[in-house]
Computed example of a mutant assay.
Amino acid sequence: MSGVLLRLVCSAAVAAGTALAPMPAAAAPDPPAASERGAAGLLTELQRLYREAERATEAYNATEERLERQRALAERLQAALARTRNSLHDSRSAAGRLARQQYQNRSDLSPYLRLLLARDAQGVLDQGQVIGRLARQRARAVGRLTGEAQKATELARRARKALDTQRALTERSRKQRDQVRERLREVEELIASLSPEEVAAVEKLERAEADAEQQRLVTSGALPVPGTAPAPTAAGAQAVSYAVRQVGKPYQWGAEGPGTYDCSGLTSQAWEAAGTPVPRTSQEQWARLERIPLKRLRPGDLVVYFPDATHVALYVGDGKVVQAPRPGARIKVSPVAGPGPVLGAVRPDPAGKPLRHYQPPELPGRAMAGPDAGRAQAPAASATSLR
């Protein structure tokens, strides 16, 4: 998920507090202060839960991608099987006609005797050539019939196997969907248990951690110096433009637009719109695209986060990325370090040539402002809205 985790907490905590009837004073202990529960511990727990939810989300996305390919394979096999069965029917009809012709032209005399007894020997020889052609036609028909029967049997076997795999993937997808929802319910329960003081302490700590990591990247020279980074390629510029146009749209796990996105749904669709398809999930984007040093980042490159590559954002230049953070949040522009610990960067179009003249798209007025997590909905509510 993303870095600034807890701006949605205020409304959730207040809502939870107002929804509960006050207990008698003697029976209701005061909630522990933030210092007692430990802001660092709470932040670690929330980050863990969000990362587990994102890990489950990306696993779900990978299964859905495989399921889509499997459905297409099953459809192709079924179409090929239907064509082969039609051809097999035609071959059987042709073989039947040849068999009837052979039966109708059958004679008890051998070809040698017919030649000796015939008044027109040349006519018999011509007839023999015709019979020879018919024999060759029969042989080809039998061979075609046998081959198509074998092909139909093999296609039927492959089609059954493809459907079995599709059913297994469908069941796996259902289980992974339930796992994501369960993780998000755990997040919601923890958020509802926080006091306003804990919310403020955890939010302050998380913001400080993100600012410190961004500063470390800048001072270490790990990021391009503003104004010196290479321009994007034409495709990279299109991907940036697409991603920036999505700013303000809600995060929804498993979504690929056009109204909602998850993190890898945004990056994959941005590059799809640029005419350069990339893998659907953040793990596959990290595994299959060319890796580059952060210092060589150019707009359009993808920045991947966390050791298991469970989050991804699209670099827009000047040390910033556009990202779909997590349930309850909206797509926004953040510092590179905002989403979390940076794992590395990948380039979807390594062979592309940078543009000679590039004008970055204008960011929406409040692209970096406001909470990283929305106040209008709780995480579990967004979880139940997925298809």
Rank of each mutant, 00 (worst) to 15 (best):
V316Y: 00
S282R: 02
V316M: 00
G328N: 06
P279V: 11
R298D: 09
S264G: 08
Y305S: 09
Y358S: 00
E362S: 14
R330M: 08
P279T: 12
G340H: 01
H311K: 12
R326F: 05
L289Q: 07
I331E: 02
H311A: 14
V312A: 08
W253S: 09
P279A: 14
R366C: 10
K320E: 15
E272L: 14
Y305R: 02
A351N: 14
D301M: 03
A337F: 10
P364A: 09
E290G: 01
D308P: 00
A329E: 11
G259F: 09
G365V: 09
P299L: 08
V322W: 05
Q285E: 06
V322E: 05
T267K: 02
R356K: 13
G265K: 10
W286K: 07
G328Q: 08
Q323A: 14
P335V: 11
S334I: 01
R347V: 03
G265D: 12
T281I: 05
Y251C: 04
P361G: 06
D301F: 01
P360M: 10
V304D: 07
V304G: 06
W253V: 07
D262L: 12
V333H: 06
P293M: 13
D262G: 12
R356C: 00
P250S: 12
K353C: 00
P335D: 13
P258F: 01
G259M: 09
Q285S: 05
R291F: 04
A329V: 04
Q252R: 15
P335G: 14
Y358Q: 01
A351V: 06
P258Y: 00
P361Y: 03
G319M: 06
W253A: 10
S334W: 04
L297T: 06
Q252M: 14
L294M: 09
W271A: 12
V336S: 04
E362W: 03
Q283F: 00
R347G: 04
P348L: 01
R326D: 13
G265Y: 09
P299N: 08
L314P: 04
K295P: 00
L302V: 03
W271D: 12
R280Q: 14
Q359C: 01
A255P: 07
V322T: 01
R356P: 05
Q269H: 02
V316G: 00
Y251S: 11
Q283D: 00
D349C: 01
V346K: 01
